[in-house]
Design a binder for these strands. Sequence first.
DNA 1: CACCCGGAAGCCAC
DNA 2: AGTGGCTTCCGGGT
Length: 628
Amino acid sequence: MDLSLSSVHTDQLWKGKHPQTWTKGEVKQWLVWCKVEFSLDNVEVERFSMNGKALCILQRDAFLHRAPFAGDVLYEHLQQLLSRDGPMDRSTPSKVSFTSSSAGPLYTHLYFPTSRVHSPLEEKLQGPDGRTVLPHLNLTDYSNSEYRKQMELLQNADTALNLSIPERANSDSGNSSPGITEEDLPGPSTKHGPILSSTPQKCVPRTRSQEQVIAVAPKKRRYYLYDRKMDHFPRECSPPHSYSSPDRTCDGSKSTSALGLGGTGHSLPQQRHISEEVQSHNPKPTLPTQRKSDSAVSCSTEAHENDSEVFVDSPVQVTPVYHARPVCPSLGPLDSSGYMMNSQRTGALSSWGHVEQYSGSFLPEHYPLRGQARVRSESSSSENSYFLRQVNMESLRRSPSKDVSGPRSPACERIGKDCRLLWDFIIQLLAEDTYKPYISWEDKEKRIFRIHDQQKIAQLWGQQKNRTNMTYEKMSRALRYYYKMGIIQKEQGQKLTYRFLQDRKDIANAPRFSKFGKKQAEKRKESGRQDQTSPQMVTASTLSPSLSFSQSPTTCSSMVNHTFSYCLEPKNMSSVAGSSSSSSMLPSTEVASVASDSRRYIGTHYQSDKGCRDAEERRLTIKKEPTG
DNA sequence: CACCCGGAAGCCAC
DNA sequence: AGTGGCTTCCGGGT
């Protein structure tokens, strides 16, 4: 019996034909067959809605894109079929969409610096000179008319923008990609790839023969950068269901659909740039709901539709590629290794992109690019809360058990770990020799530390919190809030010098920071209200810098001899109350005297303090108690 | 000019 | 919805 004949049922017509001649339906049949044959679960057949010719053009990446967990198998099988059937008119592969000289193929490229390319797949993509040449994402079955239509739109857009249409790349097969090299990336690009700079990059589309690039500066705390290579408009690019679209940001909060690039259909200005520089030159009207002063580049929906700070130079389509970068690493020369190591493994896989069109021909779609790496926030987890980690799905697929986020430098690991609070962050920086050039102990005994490079520290903090526009000024504001909380105080007269008023344990045990402390505080609140009879109110910030009430009695022998002990009893904070450690044990006279030294605090601390809604609660009360 | 201060309002995660 | 911990400005001081 002729198996080949018997197998050619209506649902297996593809078997007798060269893949390039498959119809759309036969492609579908092949996919279904593969699903069954290879037990592939995650193949969405509709995502391969194309004919055989288009299918054969797809590269492995495109397969992986469409079927993240099965793309390899499909691709390999197709290659087998192709090699079995031999080449079929390979010389004219552009029948589908590449023949029009007036409308050359458009490719989407992911750019990643060579140093970041490490996956086996990507290594294959390195050119002989070491430059990374990543293939186009996919090419779908454009009908010529539609393709021309899109090209016209593109050309119009480019004309309007004075941008050149990407020239047809290479006509030999139509699917070879123009090499994108590191130099093509705008903005500061290091050997580790484009890095976030504290100053958003100016993002002006460049005129290039083969691609244009738009870098999008940080928008709020979501996306740092994306590049655009307006080479290609893959039409079929909806995301695999297993991945969320960039519509949701790394931490799950919503962003403007595709970073404000579309979705609403509102027309965009011809050119929008997102750099602060541009912003400053073209100040936008402040919306009533808009924080008047947020210069941060914002991309969340709630951050004002009209204020979408994703800037698109084309009213037609864009194909941005997001480069989410890890937060903690790339702290500078000292710890850039963390980023590098991280990126090395995520490399090209750690991006996504999407296709948008404002004029309505295309529905806004998002598709994670090859690897579908997405930025995810681990904020829900206690660890690495503020680290964005990129998931290398390629690696996941190959070795699911591996931590594909890649190793981080020890410093980053430690500092990133459960380090969401500024004081903790600072303590951890201080604990790292790595950061000594930036911040170090001035007097460790007294817990006096000095910031040597405030910009760097602010940058680190910004990275930690994923706030791209962090400055020392802002960070210091946060530090100043600690004054009231009795965590930190300024060393008077010494620039950039602060002092921790409590040790880490005490701070951490503070009711506001620990569950235990909170419970304790609640207990006290319930049981001890009546004890608060006219306590001598002294704010922590009235304490002189010269006073050391930072140590708990258990560790501070110098305090033992005091005639009186004082129980810091904040309603809301701290160590003292929580642990009954009475961190501050100061005679009231001393308190009073030093209070008078605190020029500003006395004058300001008791004023209305409307800004801090709980300032009153944060006041530290020192209650005089006789020692027994 | 650099650093510092605290008010005010808002954001965001929990 | 409330809260904590900022972040982002700001006007002002040293």
